[in-house]
Amino acid sequence: MIVHAVLPGDVDTVPSGGNVYDRRVLAGLADLGVDVTEHRIDGPWPHGPASTIEEVLRGVPDGRAVLLDGLVACGVPDALAPHADRLRLVVLVHLPLADEAGLAGPVARELDRRERRALHHAAAVVTTSRWTAERVVRRHGLDPARVHVAPPGVDPAPVSPGSAVTGTAPHLLCLGALTPTKGQDVLVEALARVSEQAWTCVLAGPVTRDPDFVVRLRATIARHGLAGRVTVPGALTGPALERAWAATDLLVLPSRTETFGMVVTEALARGIPVAASRVGGVGEALGSAGPLPGIWVPAENVGALAAALFRWLADPMLRSGWRLSALGRRGTLTPWTSTSRRIVRHLRSPGPG
């Protein structure tokens, strides 16, 4: 089986959740014997030119399956339309385009309109959570039979020792692109309210998606006098990321919206509990078996997040309980092979051509 994959040009340079998902899925497809031809498309997606995608699709032989990252495909429905009847177009939706926080109203409405048209040209739509699947079905009037779920997998990982080994202050990690959607500004404001407690925090992730937001975030950290306790190292990969995980006692996910939250399962794989906004598909990442390995907080609620952090910082027994619950979740997580197997079924389904 031959599959063409249309990916953002930064798939190998920006360690976003969507890019990691794409890479792991394509590696899994190759392991399953699928011959994958990649097309990496540079551009300011989702605002790139339709002509670049249309040119790629024009070169794909009739009847072939094409897996398209939604960040690239959903903004260019006119590129998909001429090929919808001759190719099996499968669009992977990581985050509905209009759900990105901070968009001006007219921009969000135009992206929503384009995404609706693009997804109606797809033979199948794959999402990363049940929540997202239900959302795009309702939002865009899609046939539920054409919308499928392939949750992210997770690799086995060693238990993170955190501060228990070093004897240092409890350490928090917020991992994700620094954007309004991920809510690092909410976390910094919450940390300012618990500054009398002992803690350190790292806000790690790509800083190029919204440079103005990063400037404002750094200014807020300085204004609250937290520069010595909150660090913004940029994107972490490889050994640097593993060291960050090993030092972490609590993952904080203060997102304004989240389709799944891959960092949640990555934390649980290491026995790290999670304080997360109760949004989107995060509940699917945290799981429902056994005690909650952390705490839910309302999105964009600084007071609620500060109260949750204060409880965790001030109560060693609570910290221990969350940790034990997180350790209990390690054996319930699914591998990436499961994700790729789900997707290959929809690539192989009968379709045009």
Rank of each mutant, 00 (worst) to 15 (best):
A65G: 08
G70K: 10
R86Q: 05
C74V: 05
R64G: 03
P82M: 15
V56C: 01
G63P: 00
G75W: 01
R58Q: 14
G63Y: 01
D69R: 08
G59Y: 00
L57V: 03
D85M: 03
G75R: 08
R64T: 13
R64C: 13
L68A: 07
V66K: 05
D85I: 01
P77R: 09
L71V: 10
A79S: 14
R58P: 00
V66M: 05
V60Q: 07
G70S: 11
R86W: 03
L57I: 06
P61R: 12
H83P: 08
L67E: 05
L87Q: 10
A81N: 02
P61S: 02
L80H: 03
H83E: 09
R64H: 15
G70D: 07
V72E: 04
D78A: 15
L57T: 04
A84D: 07
L67C: 08
A84P: 02
G70Q: 06
L67V: 09
A84Y: 01
V90M: 12
R58I: 01
A81L: 15
D78C: 00
A81H: 15
R64W: 01
V91Y: 10
V91R: 03
A84S: 15
G75Q: 06
P82Q: 12
L87D: 02
D69V: 01
D62L: 01
P61G: 05
L68N: 04
D62P: 00
V76L: 05
V66A: 09
G75Y: 02
V56R: 05
R88F: 10
P61M: 05
L68C: 13
A84W: 00
G75M: 09
P77G: 13
V60I: 14
L67R: 06
V76R: 12
G59V: 00
V76H: 14
V76Y: 01
L89A: 15
L71Y: 02
L67M: 07
V60Y: 03
A73V: 11
R58M: 09
L67W: 11
A79R: 13
R86K: 09
G70A: 12
P82T: 10
L80Q: 04
V90K: 13
D62F: 00
V56K: 09
G59W: 00
P82K: 13
V56I: 14
R86C: 02
V66P: 04
L87C: 04
C74F: 00
P82D: 14
L67T: 06
L68M: 08
V90E: 12
L57M: 06
R86H: 05
L71C: 10
D69F: 02
V66H: 06
A84L: 07
V91Q: 11
V72Y: 02
R88E: 09
R58W: 07
P61N: 05
D62K: 11
R88M: 11
C74R: 14
A79I: 13
L57Q: 04
V90D: 12
V56N: 03
R58K: 13
L71Q: 09
V91N: 05
L87V: 08
L71S: 05
V72K: 08
